[in-house]
């Protein structure tokens, strides 16, 4: 009883902090928070595959990119395209792409899955790079209008950083909640079982290929929506910004550093990467050198990331307490 009340209070306090935060930290850090939220949800969607289904995707940029391009293209070419339409078209385009690649990807696991996603990702990258009449190539698409939120009685201008922060928080928060919910459902437990032992799952009457395809489609669609938010935020979509391998690698690193074994690990990891960036960029231009070294250390010594480390520390403390008693 009181536990539930406590939880509600915690949630309320959290919500209030989220609402007040942009007014306290200023515009620059509000924008940093928005990029953090995008990275975090991107990392969560990658972890839906990696941590929960045991599939390593090296090509998630394709979903991110197609969502971003769909948003930028429709905003450029359609007069008065509404904000809800942007989210919708990002989701649909990524969903379609996922439906095309899923039948092929669902057949494979392990290294082959990673390679095939990488191949698809690169294929989309070079197509967008070369067909510059449509995509603008390296220069990309820029300068489209960002539509306001229609609230019936008033319009909210999301080119204002604080308003954009609220908008991003709602959209990305809903996506995160959806994924959190998903892993708690029966389908979520199937995902985990596929990660642990796909052959056994098949003998328990589940269709592993269908389930894997479905996870991929869900994860891809979520990533596509994040891509749409990215397009709205940066007002610039280019191949280098949304489709290169690093676009796939960065959230992957975040997910791994945070810890792929827990749902919230990737959020934590995305946050850590931002903190590292903030700290190291004061001393050196080579921020990614530090990130890469940390990533290597995590892969080698902390396979469950920061969250896993925290678990081990807790277990160790608990043990030593027991011994004292």
């Amino acid at each position: 009883m009181s536990g539930k009340l406590k939880l509600t209070i915690y949630w309320l306090i959290g919500l209030i902090i989220v609402i007040i935060l942009p007014h306290v930290i200023g515009i620059v850090y509000t924008n940093v928070l928005v990029t953090f939220m995008m990275d975090a949800v991107f990392a969560l969607s990658i972890n839906l595959l990696l941590g929960f289904t045991g599939l390593l995707s090296f090509g998630h940029a394709m979903f991110f990119g197609i969502g971003a391009y769909a948003a930028a293209l429709s905003l450029t070419h359609i007069q008065g395209f509404p904000l809800i339409g942007v989210i919708f078209i990002s989701a649909i385009s990524a969903l379609l792409l996922a439906c095309i690649v899923a039948p092929l990807l669902a057949r494979v696991t392990g290294t082959a899955f990673a390679m095939l996603t990488l191949a698809f990702g690169q294929l989309l990258y070079v197509i967008c790079l070369k067909f510059r009449e449509i995509t603008g190539g390296e220069d990309g698409i820029a300068g489209y209008d960002t539509p306001p939120i229609h609230l019936g009685f008033t319009n909210v201008d999301i080119t204002d950083p604080t308003n954009f922060y609220y908008f991003a928080f709602v959209v990305l928060g809903l996506l995160a909640f959806f994924m959190w919910w998903l892993v708690k459902t029966p389908f979520g437990s199937v995902m985990i079982s596929i990660r642990d032992n796909a052959q056994r799952v098949e003998y328990l009457g589940y269709r592993v290929k269908h389930s894997k395809a479905l996870v991929l489609i869900i994860s891809g669609t979520v990533t596509g929506i994040v891509g749409g938010v990215y397009a709205l935020f940066h007002n610039l979509v280019s191949t280098d910004g949304v489709l290169t391998i690093f676009v796939s690698f960065y959230p992957l690193m975040g997910a791994y550093i945070g810890g792929i074994a827990s749902f919230f690990g990737p959020i934590f990891g995305a946050g850590l990467l931002h903190v590292f960036d903030e700290l190291t960029s004061r001393y050196t231009e080579r921020v990614d050198l530090v990130n890469g070294l940390i990533f290597i250390l995590v892969v080698m010594y902390a396979p469950y990331g920061a969250v896993g480390l925290w678990w081990s520390i807790k277990a160790w403390l608990f043990k030593s307490k027991l011994q004292k008693a």
Binding site: L50, G110, F249, L252, D288, L289, G292, F295, I296, M300
Partner: peptide
Amino acid sequence: HIAELLLTLGMSLVILE
């Protein structure tokens, strides 16, 4: 293999930087 793939990915990043 997944850990190995990720490790080589990290190595490529570190060498590049």
